Amino acid sequence: MSRKPIIHIEKTGLATSFQDKGRYGFQRYGVVTSGAMDSFAFQTANGLVGNPLNAVCLELCIVGPTLTFLDTVTFAICGANLSPILNSTPILGWRTYTAKRGDTLEFGKQIEGTFAYLAIRGSFEVEEVLGSKSTYTKAEIGTTVTPKTIYYSTHSTLLKRNRGLIQKEIPTYHHHIEVRYIRGPHLDYLQEDAVSNFEEQIFTYTLGDRMGFRLQGESPIQSKQQSLPSDPIPLGGIQIPPDGCPIVLLADRQTTGGYPRIGTIISYDIPKFVQLPLQGKVSFYPISVEKAQQLHRRSIFTYN
């Protein structure tokens, strides 16, 4: 089968990468999972164009790329509002558009959120490594986004496009959010007032990338013991390093870590958390495992 070009990347943007749901089953060998930071926006974009929900997308971060379409294409952009512009005309997220050969797509100012997902019906031909097409730039795994031509996937599966995303399901991204988390597992390594101190503070997101977000509060979270034997790091794990400033571990997190963890953000709230902009505010409150599981079951996609 001959390869068919789909887009040409003119400018790469700030931290654009190819992502699917992630690379699972290899953390025991030191391979990070990667995958889309915002799984809800990622899967919605695929559903809107009729791709399988795990089809690889372009993940955009803060500053989007500039693309030229090389074929008539159905596409959708979900997640952060990065001011998408099709042929000099502003367009909206969370809906489908058709571009023709020679059309250009670019992005302007970051309005709300941090990560957006560009899905194209038919998806992209990019390198698959260990069962995933996600890019992990630090280890040079996957296809790096550079100015070049990208082709249609030769193994793409097309489904019926889902148009049922109703307005009330489209998230709004805020500069001050509340996030639910499950306490533990290393509370014995923290001072007695650490949990109450953590839950009573409002933290500022000061530094971060796909690996994790660093938070700054008014007073540090104190530890009895600043390190412990390394153990596996879950998505959303909240580490307390020696300086007492929490670090939330995300898609490109390391496989193991030796700082005590005060808790883990529930999977249902991860999409909301990762869309927090720099200098955004976040506070945490505890939730039971049972309630977290109920929310997780609600979040599973069931496209008609």
Rank of each mutant, 00 (worst) to 15 (best):
Q27F: 00
Q110D: 03
K272F: 05
Y152A: 04
Y151N: 14
A80L: 06
F75Y: 14
P260M: 09
R183L: 12
A194D: 11
V129K: 10
E112R: 11
G142A: 02
V282I: 02
D71P: 03
I7H: 10
Y173W: 14
D209F: 07
F213G: 01
A194S: 13
T96C: 12
F18P: 05
G35N: 01
H176P: 00
I141F: 11
Q226T: 13
G212R: 01
I221K: 02
L48G: 00
Y173I: 01
P5V: 06
D188C: 03
Q226A: 10
T137I: 11
G280M: 02
V289N: 07
L159V: 00
T68D: 09
S156G: 05
Q279K: 14
N46G: 03
E169F: 13
A139E: 15
P271E: 06
C61E: 15
N197A: 12
M1D: 13
I7T: 03
P286V: 04
V289R: 08
G212N: 00
W94R: 02
K168L: 05
G79I: 03
A292P: 04
S88A: 10
G108M: 05
T255F: 07
I202F: 02
F115T: 02
N46P: 04
A45F: 08
V63A: 15
N162I: 06
I287W: 06
V31Y: 10
I287V: 15
G79F: 07
A76G: 02
T74H: 15
R23L: 00
I265M: 09
G208Q: 02
S227N: 13
C57K: 04
G237I: 06
L82H: 03
I262N: 03
Q225V: 11
L250I: 10
P229L: 14
D188G: 06
H176M: 01
I233W: 02
Q226I: 12
I141T: 04
E140P: 00
G35W: 06
E127L: 11
I240P: 06
E169W: 10
E169P: 00
P171I: 00
Y151P: 04
K109A: 13
T135W: 09
E10V: 13
I221W: 07
N304T: 09
R298K: 15
I177N: 02
T33V: 11
H175R: 12
Y285H: 15
L105K: 00
L207F: 14
E192G: 00
T172A: 12
D243N: 15
I62C: 09
I270R: 09
A55V: 05
R183K: 14
T137L: 13
D193P: 03
I77A: 05
K109S: 13
P84W: 04
F115N: 12
S83W: 07
I247Y: 08
L235K: 07
Q216C: 08
Q294M: 08
K160L: 09
P234Q: 05
S39T: 13
F203R: 02
L276R: 05
D231Q: 15
A116C: 04
G184N: 08
F40A: 02
